[in-house]
């Protein structure tokens, strides 16, 4: 993966998170999450009735590297809402439980 390729992926991320109100970088896809943490975030977003887009880092090594650098966050999944980094599975779960996530999604 060249630095240029990573840079291009970061631009793609910047575009994705500005175009999609709720954007999830995950392992696998909505129908077939490939990791329990990604599956949990999908479950929460679905439960809240959120419309969201996903991208699969397992099928795109450049994206996997780029999203970690872009967010300065070492693990997947990563959730963005309104263009802002929310966190991974733990923070998403915490914000679901305290109601903040619902508020953000319906804002």
């Amino acid at each position: 993966m060249t630095p240029e390729e990573i840079e291009n992926k970061k631009q793609e991320i910047a575009s994705d998170i500005s175009t999609n109100k709720v954007m999830l970088y995950m392992k696998g896809n909505k129908q077939a999450p490939m990791c329990g943490f990604s599956a949990q975030v999908i479950q929460i977003l679905t439960h809240l009735g959120a419309e969201f887009e996903t991208k699969d880092v397992l099928s795109d090594e450049g994206l996997r590297q780029a999203i970690k650098e872009f967010s300065d966050w070492p693990t997947i999944p990563q959730l963005y809402i309104n263009g802002e980094f929310i966190g991974g599975c733990d923070i998403t779960t915490e914000m679901f439980q305290n109601g903040e996530l619902k508020t953000l999604i319906s804002s």
């Binding site: 300065d72 070492p74 693990t75 980094f85 991974g88 923070i91 915490e94 914000m95």
Partner: peptide
């Protein structure tokens, strides 16, 4: 929360 997690990471 994000800041705390970043510190641990």
């Amino acid at each position: 929360s994000v800041a705390c997690h970043r510190m641990v990471n």
